[in-house]
Amino acid sequence: MTEVLRSEWTKIYTVRSTMWMLVATVVTMLGLAVMASVTAVLNDLPKSPDPIKFTLGGTQLAVLLMATLGVLVISGEYRTGMIRTTLLAVPRRIRMLSGKVLVFAVAALVTSLITILVTFFASQAVLGDLGTTLGAPGVLGALVGSALYLTASGLFGLALGALIRHTPGAIIAAICLMVVLPGLVQSLPGEWGPAVSRYFTTTAGQQITFTRPVEGALGPWEGFGVYCVWIAVIMIIATIFLRRRDA
């Protein structure tokens, strides 16, 4: 297995799309945070009850970038035909997919953590008195939580990529499941809307990115756990198909 991990690590850093997606994630997070902070300072906004309001504004966009990167890790191999070369080298398909998942998860978590910390300190530097500290209640938890959320979202993309095997299809599925449907479900009539919506993908998952629990929503870890179940289910379906289908 360590051999597969080394190989997948080499694969992930030797294609340019990985680097570009990571750069895009950093730029999005950092750019939006710095702009929001500068605007807040210039307009002399009052101190927000949410201490990281101006810091993590890029998360929702970054989530989609991470999901896209996750999709590409595997759909890129199907597009080029490289998957067949990969399976000749590692014919045990579950081992192959586990290698990709592990390497991607670690790479995504490390980049997300670094990006979020850099973003936090950059926006604090701009905010001055309007800002907060790492030690303030809920702040560190929200930052780490956001990194976990970004990582999980990347794995969401990877699972969809493995299942759908087609880049545009998988990206569209990711946008639908992570952005469009959570919005639609929320506006379901009657009691249904809020009841179902709480458990729906990103609505549940993003609870871990807040400094304080949200009224009517799942708790941070509860929500994140539900998000992980969504990902696990898609991953398991993808694995079953991966074993059965011709490459």
Partner: peptide
């Protein structure tokens, strides 16, 4: 085995392509 010579990720260098294959099989 050589099945389809074009079934490779065009973004990698020849060296890196072979390197990831080598690593996967020790």
């Amino acid at each position: 085995a050589l099945l389809d010579a074009k079934a490779v990720h065009g973004g990698r260098t020849a060296r890196n392509h072979l390197l990831c294959l080598a690593q996967s099989n020790g």
